[in-house]
Simulated scan of single mutants.
Amino acid sequence: MADSMVDQALLETWNRRHAEAEDLGRVATVVEQNLHLVKPGVQALDLACGRGATALYMAAAGLDVTAWDLSPVAIQRLELAAAEQGLSIRTAVRDVIAAPPEPASFDLVLVSYFLERSLAPAIARALRPGGLLFYQTFSRAAVSDEGPRSEQYRLGDNELLDLFAMLKVRVYREERCLGDTSRGWRDLAMLVAERV
């Protein structure tokens, strides 16, 4: 009973955040910088998509996009935006922790600003051979206050490489607090990795 109350509270929190947000969010940098690695038409999953800025970006670029999120409010906002932009995106309200993607079901899986370490093997298995994982989220080595307060939801040093060691690294970036912290790509880690 306590678990369902926690889940309901979490859902209410996310529904409220998505309802109150002024926009659809921002496109994941890992996708903006690396989409050239993907052929148009591939089947892509935006896992825990939020309001769907990146799902819309991928669909506009010619990918066959599926987008899942726990929040019905987020999915509703994404569906409305997709209809307004004339884009086709398959959406579902889905608890990805309880129901991760099926093995070998996508050519690309995007995870952006979501960290559930126990899902890493299922996410890797969801890729078809030659498929790519695009992942970015917050690092514990931060120079700003952006992102979650709890270290549970932040990556340790090189943690993405460890979580997805079964995949072949194609792009990795984690600047941490090196050098001039007023410049560069800070507070985050990104990975593009291939299932070979």
Rank of each mutant, 00 (worst) to 15 (best):
L160F: 02
S71N: 04
A122N: 02
A74E: 05
V38W: 06
E22V: 02
E12Y: 12
L11A: 13
P148C: 09
A124I: 10
L11C: 11
A67E: 08
P72G: 06
R154F: 13
L47I: 03
R117Y: 05
L127P: 04
Q85S: 14
A141H: 12
T91L: 12
H36E: 09
L47K: 01
A48N: 02
A104L: 09
H36Q: 15
N15C: 06
D107R: 03
E32Y: 01
R173C: 09
K39M: 12
L24C: 07
F106M: 14
T54F: 00
P103C: 08
A61C: 08
E194M: 04
R170D: 14
Q85T: 03
S71V: 02
T29A: 10
R170E: 13
L24Y: 09
G130K: 08
A141V: 04
V42L: 12
S144K: 10
N158Q: 15
P72Y: 11
P101H: 03
V169I: 03
C49V: 05
E194F: 00
P148L: 06
A92V: 01
V31K: 12
E159D: 03
T29K: 10
A28D: 06
A141K: 05
E146N: 13
P101I: 05
A59T: 00
M166Q: 15
R170V: 13
R140A: 04
D95Q: 09
R128N: 09
A74H: 08
A189D: 02
S139I: 02
P148K: 02
I123A: 02
K39P: 01
L119I: 11
G131H: 06
V38T: 07
P129A: 11
R94D: 04
D145M: 11
A19T: 11
I123G: 00
V65R: 13
A189W: 08
V38P: 01
W68P: 13
A53P: 04
R17M: 07
A141G: 04
A193I: 08
A9Q: 14
G156F: 09
A9V: 14
L132Y: 00
S71M: 01
R154T: 08
Y172V: 01
N15L: 00
Q76G: 12
D7W: 11
F134H: 08
Y135A: 04
S88L: 15
T181I: 15
A19S: 13
A55V: 01
E84A: 15
R170S: 08
Q85M: 07
A19E: 15
Y113H: 08
